[in-house]
Simulated scan of single mutants.
Amino acid sequence: MKCPSCQHFETKVIDSRVTKDGTAIRRRRECLSCGFRFTTYERAEIQLPMIIKRDGRREPFIREKVIEGLKKACQKRPISMEQIEAFVNQLERELAETGEKEIHSTTIGEKVMEKLHEWDEVAYVRFASVYRQFQDVTEFIEQIQQLLNKKKRPGN
């Protein structure tokens, strides 16, 4: 494992632990050259479908892109990194279990929207404004109005 500080290739593992959700092994490492300590995660590699973007391009599913989008939407909201990680783990399992070779990005976007709607309305609207590409404030207001109308219905 290459040291992120000095780029030396020899490091030693100081500590290994299974993550809380049991989907990865967390390893603390120390560079044998400069002594820099860092953390790595080892995950099982699962075959995920290619993602078909809106413009027709295809790219591999990138876990970090989903996490970054969720982190931006949930910034300064009461959503923990553990919740985000658990959701992305679940999403990866669901995608792998479909058995599909390709999947549209809108499928992933809608799953993220559903989870954010369940977690936090502010995070949901933040994500929706980017995901649905709001062009003006009117679209933003319409989305908020829909949320308010759902809250007013009996049984909500």
Results as ranks from 00 to 15, higher is better:
S16N: 03
R28M: 13
E114M: 10
R28D: 13
V122P: 02
E142V: 13
L148F: 12
V66N: 06
F127N: 03
V122Q: 01
V112F: 04
T107W: 06
V122F: 03
T40I: 05
E68F: 06
H8C: 08
E64I: 05
T23F: 06
K72H: 06
R153D: 14
E100S: 02
D120E: 14
R153T: 15
N89R: 01
E82Y: 01
I84Q: 02
H8R: 09
G99R: 05
E118W: 10
Q133I: 07
L147S: 11
S80I: 04
R26W: 06
P4W: 08
I25L: 09
C31Y: 04
E110H: 11
A86V: 00
Q75R: 07
C6Y: 07
K71M: 14
Q83R: 04
L91Q: 01
K111D: 10
E68S: 12
F140C: 07
F36K: 11
R58Q: 12
P154Q: 15
E10I: 06
C6F: 07
Y41Q: 09
M1H: 12
Q133L: 07
I141S: 11
A73V: 03
T11S: 13
K101W: 00
V125A: 07
E139Q: 15
P4D: 10
K12T: 14
S105M: 00
V137I: 14
N149T: 13
N89M: 00
H8L: 05
E139F: 06
R26T: 05
E30D: 11
S80V: 03
A128L: 13
L148P: 02
I62P: 01
R17H: 11
E100N: 05
T107R: 08
C34P: 12
T138A: 14
E68C: 00
A44L: 14
T107G: 04
T107N: 07
R153A: 15
I84Y: 02
R37M: 08
F61E: 02
M50I: 01
R77Y: 04
E102R: 03
Y131F: 14
I46Y: 02
R63Q: 08
Q47T: 12
E102K: 05
K71P: 04
F140D: 09
D120G: 10
K76P: 05
I14N: 11
C6H: 09
E110P: 00
D120F: 06
I108T: 04
K152H: 15
L32G: 00
L48V: 11
F36L: 09
E45F: 09
R126Q: 07
I14A: 08
R132M: 13
Q75K: 05
V88L: 02
R43H: 14
E142R: 14
F38I: 05
R126T: 08
G99S: 07
L147Y: 10
A73Y: 02
M50N: 11
S16E: 05
E114L: 06
L48N: 08
P49I: 03
K71Q: 15
I14L: 15
M1E: 08
A44T: 13
I84E: 01
K76I: 00
T40C: 05
I79C: 06
I46F: 04
P4C: 08
L32K: 14
K53P: 08
Q145M: 13
K150V: 09
C6N: 09
M50H: 04
C31I: 05
H104I: 00
F36N: 15
F38W: 10
V66E: 06
R37N: 10
H104M: 01
A96T: 07
C3E: 08
I108E: 03
K71D: 10
N89C: 00
Q145C: 12
I144F: 10
F9T: 13
